Amino acid sequence: MKKFSYQQANTDHTLFIKHRAGKVTLLIIYVDDMIVTGDDTAKIEELQKCLASEFEIKDLGSLKYFLGVEVTRSKHGLFLSQRKYVMDLLADTGMLDCKPADTPIVENHKLGVYVDQSYLKSAPGRGLLFKKKNGHLDLEGYTNADYARNITDRHSTSGYFTFVGGNLVTWRSKKQNVVSRSFAESEYRGIAQGVCEIL
């Protein structure tokens, strides 16, 4: 990819990016599966030809399935789910006929594979909808932290949410590695994690 003047992303070494005249072309690869996308159709076609000159490739058209995630497009946006993966898992474990459960935890019941798969059986098509908002690709980030909430070790917990075009794309909540000396310090540590994610 570097030979074709693409830059490898620092945050994900399987992602390659090329900017040209305000447009972008992206390639993400996992073993022998890849996605080529962007808003520069000429560069996308050029990249596909370059890749085909290096090794045999097969264009499967619009993205429908990648690494266990099904992609469905509609006028509302993109819907991502793992329906096929869930159904295959239920079939492989002989749980296709199990009774669906509304939550992954059932009171007075031994937790285990049965409960998890019963929950999966209740709605195998659940997923994430990324709504299309014309002209709105703003990147937003929100952070928060508590101060020494853990009574055992006095560590704070911080978390962040990031949105692209109003759609939640990443989130995390984690106990901080060190003990903060003030509420402000715990907040700054949380902000630093959120900013790193946005970058």
Rank of each mutant, 00 (worst) to 15 (best):
D92S: 11
A9C: 15
K174V: 11
C196G: 15
T37E: 02
E70S: 00
G159A: 14
L60R: 05
H109C: 10
D12I: 05
H13F: 13
K174A: 14
Q176T: 06
G22S: 10
E107Y: 09
Q48E: 11
A123P: 00
L67V: 15
L120F: 02
L129E: 10
M34K: 10
K121G: 00
L137C: 11
G22Q: 05
T93I: 08
V69I: 15
R126F: 11
E45V: 15
G22N: 13
G94A: 12
N167I: 14
G141V: 07
W171E: 09
S118D: 00
M1F: 07
D116W: 12
G61D: 06
V113C: 10
D146H: 06
N144T: 01
A21S: 13
K3V: 05
E56Y: 14
R172M: 15
E70K: 03
Y160L: 08
Q48S: 08
F163N: 00
R149E: 05
H19G: 12
Y85S: 01
K49H: 15
I44H: 09
G38P: 04
V36N: 01
I29L: 11
E54K: 06
V106R: 00
G141Q: 07
L199T: 12
K174G: 05
P124K: 09
E45H: 15
T152L: 10
T11R: 15
K175S: 03
V31G: 04
A192K: 07
N10T: 06
Q176N: 12
F161L: 13
H155C: 06
V164C: 03
M1H: 06
Y188A: 02
T41K: 11
Y114D: 06
V106I: 14
I29N: 00
G112F: 02
R172C: 10
R172H: 08
E197I: 11
L80A: 15
A123Y: 13
F16Q: 01
Q193D: 12
G190C: 01
Q176H: 04
D39M: 13
L26V: 02
F163S: 03
I198H: 07
T103A: 09
Q176K: 02
Y114N: 08
Y114G: 09
Y6V: 14
T170N: 11
D146N: 14
L89N: 00
K131R: 07
D146A: 10
H19E: 11
M34C: 12
